[in-house]
Design a protein around this nucleic acid. Sequence first.
DNA 1: TCCACTACCTACTAGTAGGTAGGCAAAATC
DNA 2: GATTTTGCCTACCTACTAGTAGGTAGTGGA
Lengths: 206, 206
Amino acid sequence: MSESPSSDGKSTRELILDEALTCFAERGYEGTSLNDIAAGVGIKRPSLLHHFPSKEALYGDVFEKLLSDWMERLADAINSHTTGWEKFELVLRAGFDLFADTPDYVRIMRREALDGGIHLGIDLSGVLKPLFESAAQYLQEQMDAGRFRQHDPHHLLITGYGAILTYFSDAPFIDGLLEEQSLLHKNINSHCENVTAFFRSALLTE
Amino acid sequence: MSESPSSDGKSTRELILDEALTCFAERGYEGTSLNDIAAGVGIKRPSLLHHFPSKEALYGDVFEKLLSDWMERLADAINSHTTGWEKFELVLRAGFDLFADTPDYVRIMRREALDGGIHLGIDLSGVLKPLFESAAQYLQEQMDAGRFRQHDPHHLLITGYGAILTYFSDAPFIDGLLEEQSLLHKNINSHCENVTAFFRSALLTE
DNA sequence: TCCACTACCTACTAGTAGGTAGGCAAAATC
DNA sequence: GATTTTGCCTACCTACTAGTAGGTAGTGGA
């Protein structure tokens, strides 16, 4: 048991989590009803509530999965045995690939940041702070060693965070500005190269 | 008539628009009820609906005011008779000041970009596209004249848009990362200086 | 004095939200 | 083979939503 009656090998619970992610990312917490999610899976609302005790709990589980998926995927790039600009570019690229593969994660994360985390029991920035601080420390070391130009590492990271996330979170809006499908791989790669070149100009002296 | 019975010189209609902006920015379109807004003004929902025909119309009017306010305030910086880096820095500073004064506008704008403009009759990116294109053209001219380093102007603007807006839209989240009140004037100025220095490094050759 | 209008109210509608109770059939366990 | 568990269902609940109907007090002009 605990195996799905429908579609591929996924359990109903996993199907619900997938559909919930899509809905929450697209229309937000308040804009999504449990009926929407249940209908997307092909069951009725009470059946959904058999798998998750409440809407809030379901939302929390979606977020838990998001964080563990992201951390797992970023770990490789962060722990790679490279230094200087090479490592910075590697992590930047990994971030872009990660976001390109999981645009729904980016949107739901943005929404949660906008709402100030009211729907989540956990403090989002608290969870990400260790990652943020270790990145800042890395930048500071590189600057002290003269490999990067001097900038405030925290503000630099906030700038980068905003620049990269926005491309994915505000995709519909950016589509309109660029008159392109911003989430096509071709265009994601193009933007990644531009952002990389921009950071290289700002950080490297030669 | 058409004058307010309450508070200062503002009409009830203006009080409703103010309260609606605050609520929509903080909790989003779906997360805000007309009862919330009416209660904030000190009237009942039917009285609110006497001033605005529907929730959607009220939201639209809030946005119309946002766009005209922003356009008006940015016009001075854009039309200033400066060139090269000086003008870029002037517009950047004007943008920061503008956003610092109107953080609720930034948040509601972000939400609308996230939602893809479904609550608005108008196409947001269409409205802002002329501004976007003229900025891109300016950058291209400066690059062609050798005053700025070569970057793709459109991608550069998207990067800047994301970097700056995020600081204001995601304020609660960024507060947690920086362990500071990001919207204090002191910290806004600090971030503005950092972003400016960062762009200067990326755009200027010497 | 009468009329029209504004700004507000209470009381209602229809519809939807999240969540619960209880039943039923198939599968797993004893 | 009997019993328990799982997964889903229909039918229901309460609370809240946007919006409407109809009434009232006050205002200003003819």
